[in-house]
Design a protein around this nucleic acid. Structure first.
Lengths: 157, 157
DNA sequence: CGAATCTCAGGCGAACTGATATGC
DNA sequence: CGCATATCAGTTGGCCTGAGATTC
């Protein structure tokens, strides 16, 4: 039951944050998920799409669709990768950088609320725990069963 | 920046959990979000749709669409509310209860992973913090500005 | 050769907005 | 009357599956 409570609390917190962010960014013309992509692009001069997939916790097909939208709005550019001709190098345009800055300001309130009831230490600890949690949950997905006893499907609890 | 890191960690954890749950429930024929609705219905004999909206952190229109799907699969029933004729009383069918039990077993692994790297105390504390966080973030959305200085839009950080 | 990177077509559930009917 | 509960129509962005081309 604790696991389920944690899962539901995680859901509640994420959905609340996501909605609030979407609302605060409405005037910027971008969604919360697009904001995440732009944010990832500000830390790192030029990233490939698969790097972006990792940093945004997205998947290749979804990210591509988002990049097409962002490209249509002239917020990002995609150029051929200098050394790897399979890859594409994604970067913010000046307009993208400007829109992101405004969006960042508009979403300040959300981050403020996130930190409102936590001490700095608690928030940092929580971020760390959530990251570990994410990596544990994500692991064991694409692995094609190496040893043997991976999906002990019928285990009770 | 801490706020953003926390937000990104929250996103990563939620999306990882959601994906994993969707995968584990594929054979049950329900999605992770539908699972949440069924779970809410197991705790509480019969709930109205607006009660379900609260418990699942959803919204009325989205929930309605989900209920129609679940009703089409004969997992839930909607009957007129005994005292309030505006409301509808939602409850699990026997089939719904049975499907939910299987789904619960199939998703055990996800909850196990969630708790894997946390002590019981940490997990409980985290669930509590996430709930508070959700309520803080959610508040101030539907409020039509009572005092005056609600959206101090330009605040820096 | 296998593996990685990205493209493309298509489908679907979830999340909305806005308007409406009905009952409290 | 205002407010709450739920319905309906319609739109959108996000997330997937599966197939394919190209390059490492």
């Amino acid at each position: 039951m604790l696991g389920h409570e944690l899962a539901m609390a995680l859901r509640a917190a994420y959905l609340a944050m996501h909605r609030r962010t979407d609302n605060s960014l409405a005037k910027s013309g971008i969604t919360a998920d697009q904001f995440v992509v732009l944010a990832a692009l500000t830390e790192g001069i030029a990233l490939t799409q698969s790097e972006l997939v990792c940093r945004t916790s997205s998947d290749p097909n979804t990210l591509r669709a988002m990049l097409i939208i962002l490209e249509g709005q002239r917020l990002i550019e995609r150029r051929p990768h200098p050394t790897d001709r399979r890859a594409r190098s994604v970067s913010l345009t000046r307009r993208g950088r400007s829109v992101f800055r405004r969006a960042w300001r508009r979403s300040e309130g959300v981050r403020k609320h996130l930190l409102a009831e936590l001490t700095t230490a608690e928030a940092a600890s929580m971020a760390g725990q959530l990251r570990r949690l994410a990596s544990v949950v994500a692991k064991g997905r694409a692995e094609p069963v190496k040893s043997s006893h991976r999906t002990a499907v019928g285990t009770t609890s």
